[in-house]
Design a protein around this nucleic acid. Sequence first.
DNA 1: AAGGGCTTTCCACGATACGGAAGCCTGTGT
DNA 2: ACACAGGCTTCCGTATCGTGGAAAGCCCTT
Lengths: 277, 277
Amino acid sequence: MTTSTKTKPPVKKKPSSERSPQVQSLSRALVILEKLSEHDGGLSLTELAHLCELPTSTTHRLLTTLENKRFVRFNRGSNLWSVGVQSFVVGNAFARSRNFVPMAKIFMRHLMDKAGETVNLATQDHEEIVYLAQVECKEMMRAFVRPGLRAPMHCSAVGKAIMAAMPEVERTRMFNIQGVGNDTRSNIYTPDFMNTLDAVRECGYALDDEEQSVGMRCVASVIYDENGGPLAAVSISGPTARITDKRIPVLGKLVNQTCRDITESFGGRPSENVILP
Amino acid sequence: MTTSTKTKPPVKKKPSSERSPQVQSLSRALVILEKLSEHDGGLSLTELAHLCELPTSTTHRLLTTLENKRFVRFNRGSNLWSVGVQSFVVGNAFARSRNFVPMAKIFMRHLMDKAGETVNLATQDHEEIVYLAQVECKEMMRAFVRPGLRAPMHCSAVGKAIMAAMPEVERTRMFNIQGVGNDTRSNIYTPDFMNTLDAVRECGYALDDEEQSVGMRCVASVIYDENGGPLAAVSISGPTARITDKRIPVLGKLVNQTCRDITESFGGRPSENVILP
DNA sequence: AAGGGCTTTCCACGATACGGAAGCCTGTGT
DNA sequence: ACACAGGCTTCCGTATCGTGGAAAGCCCTT
């Protein structure tokens, strides 16, 4: 019986890829969910099966199981599958349980180690930015920012990074509000400032060259929320003597990478305005 | 051998419970995700296995598979499992793909059929409410509301329903703002009004008795967003002659049920202030 | 009517998920 | 210190359950 029926199939079992035992059907179903979430318009069975490299019958069986529990939905008529309510309901539990600032601080600490400079976290509040947290470096000369401190958007690196990441409409709304501001230099939002923001989007970080405080330079990048909008920004700040022109691109790259990491671990949607080679 | 090893087990296959073929391991994994999402604090392996009525080894195997794909996360140290980033990322695809108003209108149409009266959808915008959509009934005498129309919160049923569902802080903030309003009757937010809102929470619907427009009565209930806050409200409106005192509780129950249905299919978090017997 | 492209169902096979039990940690009580 | 308890993690033989090819439906278009 079956002495050599199939010559013992060539054992294409992967070279013990994963550490823990994995449930094939579940892994496959999760891939299906991921693919669906990457295609907002929905996917047909065959498209989906192709993307996941699975037979259609298997894909279909997994989909119906997911559908029974409302994790996916099927649009009869267009014959398209998409992500279902229950996925959203479950996902929101993550949104509730995460608390942003402590999580961000872990990444900020690493950044401080690598950059050797103080790292700040700030977010937008109306037409200003508010500092949320700081991880101080060990240098004697360093910038202090008490959490809760406010600053105008246009003259801080974090503010520029956030403004650059705003949707167009939001940004122009802010431009219109400006003028009632308490800043003496009139008409802050010049065409020149617009170009600055374009540059920020292109290179992935914003610069504050002693604008907020004499002798202080900051390099900042932005953290995206789940809709691809700006959620907060991280900056590296230090005295002009240490934040040299040559060092700025290096620090920019560092702070940008940190923000990408935070965005990912937070469940944000990185903007498609990419950024850095 | 094994000719009759187990006398062919008594085929305890369930009486064809489900229509489509179901993948056991996946179904179980989805139950795990649901249970995790209902316990924001996280769950230990054994607690979870208990809740899902599964052996711990099976639960553990499914969890590690889910963890590899970041759908759950494990807190080493507290030994607690909770929902992971990837669940959130996938769930957000649902948030993007849903468009609220068309979906709500399907339910509103059903409500209009059952109630025989015009049904409205409205949401909050700053200190006012804005009407988003209307499903008109066939009566000659009926209320017209053009989408985009605004009304004060305190004298519309939808406004009261939304205010009643607000978190306490938000509501008191609104009370403080009031006074700069253009309404002549001063001090609208009296203790009496507060009691009204308490009543709304208790019975599950709000009433506008000719306050917004003479001869018109409205009964409204609220749709919750994913955080359990008010997202929008649905009202039934009609002439006082048809919306009789006796009919109000009936209509209230109907509009409340519709709002529950919309909340569910939208992925909202029904408030735990429950409502109706 | 026939033909393609798709979804859905069926079914025999055997790979794969199952779960009991044994190992392994970590913290607790004596 | 030592043993014990109560979890978490791994192991492994069994047969259940998932698998995928094939065939059956189900539209549309030709």
